[in-house]
Amino acid sequence: MGIVFKYGENVDTDVIIPARHLSTSVPAELAKHCMEDIDAEFVNQVKEGDIIVAGKNFGCGSSREHAPIAIKAAGVSCVIAPTFARIFYRNSFNTGLPILECEEAAVKIQAGDEVEVNFKTGEIRNTTKGETYQAEPFPEFISKIIACDGLVNYVKNNL
């Protein structure tokens, strides 16, 4: 269960974590600057378990894994959007940040709503509005990586 922070379309990795902060790769350090270029208040307000809901093409731009790492380290439990930029999509699973593609949820959920997500079924429940949305379930191959808790362990098992 988490409170929703809502953003528009094409949220890019330069606003998720600006390059000027990339001379470190420590998650807690990165988390301090998460989203600061579009929402300076985000880091002060976000609480463990909160959820980001955004428009299409979330995470476009650079390949920096610092982006999903910063979001996860800030306490966010899930990102929901109609589509994700492809590198961000890979990086999220590889680093253990759950993301879900769901157009309906992205449209209907509003900032401040309370939302609950079932990752097994892809079901998204909006308890504020009393609505339920269905996200695409994860492809089988990605489920395998998730089952290993990310790519690091997947490789460890397959080396």
Partner: peptide, 20 residues
Amino acid sequence: TGIGSTDMAAGMARGKAWFK
């Protein structure tokens, strides 16, 4: 194609990567 650091690490270790 561009990928992130974890994919890069797996690529360095195994010389392989997953793609859709």
